[in-house]
Design a protein around this nucleic acid. Sequence first.
DNA 1: GAACTCAGTTAATGATCACTAACAATACGT
DNA 2: ACGTATTGTTAGTGATCATTAACTGAGTTC
Lengths: 204, 204
Amino acid sequence: MKANGKDLAATDRDRAKAQRREDLLAEATRLFAIHGYAGVSLEDLGAACGISGPAVYRHFSGKPAVLIALLVGVSEDMLEGGRKVTAAGGGAEAILRRLIAFHTDFALARPDIIQVQDRHLVTLPAAELQLVRKLQRSYIALWTDQLHQIHPEETNAVIRFRAHAAFGLLNSTAHSAHSPRTSKAGLRKLLNQMAASALFTRVG
Amino acid sequence: MKANGKDLAATDRDRAKAQRREDLLAEATRLFAIHGYAGVSLEDLGAACGISGPAVYRHFSGKPAVLIALLVGVSEDMLEGGRKVTAAGGGAEAILRRLIAFHTDFALARPDIIQVQDRHLVTLPAAELQLVRKLQRSYIALWTDQLHQIHPEETNAVIRFRAHAAFGLLNSTAHSAHSPRTSKAGLRKLLNQMAASALFTRVG
DNA sequence: GAACTCAGTTAATGATCACTAACAATACGT
DNA sequence: ACGTATTGTTAGTGATCATTAACTGAGTTC
């Protein structure tokens, strides 16, 4: 029996298993981004990790569970990151600029998972879809809380719309080809500036 | 034998067939947007049009052909629309504002096809993927031609990146839920303003 | 109105997978 | 060392689904 559920990597086997799980999630992200969820068989996923097909069931209860782990994970990561930069304080504009920077860095660092989230959210079973949406609502609330201060005259719906538009802008990195000729630092600055302009501009 | 390939709807049967084809494409757009390409069987698609399964083969050579017709069609529509507003002349800024307005209206009018394009482009067979990408390159060139005049110091890659970011912003309408509480005219104005701000802002 | 075309039907067929079963080998705990 | 737990293996199994076959009936043409 396991002595303690909280003990991470108590034994060699546990360590190996955790590593295998991470490998599977990483490969799944890569493969789903390239071929789509339906275009990747468990055989493919296993093979990418050096194991074969049904062995995946030792780590996930089925194919949907892999997608769930990916999407819940990324939603939690973004929410946690967003909370961190929000907690650092400052005025609404300063906080928003940090949120933009955080989101930009995330999109530049992990374009494939952003792509999977954008494309395959609807593929989730209803229960998990709800969970992910709840996490996303919490994340977007971090943005809209600040946006309300910047645009006090705008309705909730409009503010939320602004945030979605900014996400679309920033997540576009994930879809546009990554030309190695342009430095990531340059793109980072450009994206930050474009998103800030879009979010702060007043519509009259 | 058909008297003339160019005669549209010469007979009742031709008219009915053209209508059925349109219905199939419309339903395919709707269903693919909701359930994804892989999540819709030809049986489903046929049923949505009141015919059943294999009858779809009277109109398309197979399931991929349906997606191809959709995506090539939308790419052609956008390119044609973009060319029209570009041809109307004016300065770079005026043309860009018209491009933004055109794209905004398109995204607001046909969110489902935008969604299908964003999600399922990669699903296309290689040959057709090339065609669609070529059309998209032509469309984006309409934007970058003007952007180069606005930002003469920026490289091709950066300019293209700006355009992609703007598309991401504008296409976000297709993904964010359509709240009926906010008027489309209001969203239209907001999107136009946000996109213009993002495209025109200078990065220093 | 006779010959033909063609959109539709239902009934196979065949491939692809997700998932299960039965078994093998190795690591773990005592 | 010994029994157990666990990760992996290879063979099924069953469902789904794109596609084909054979046929039907109505519209089109001459």
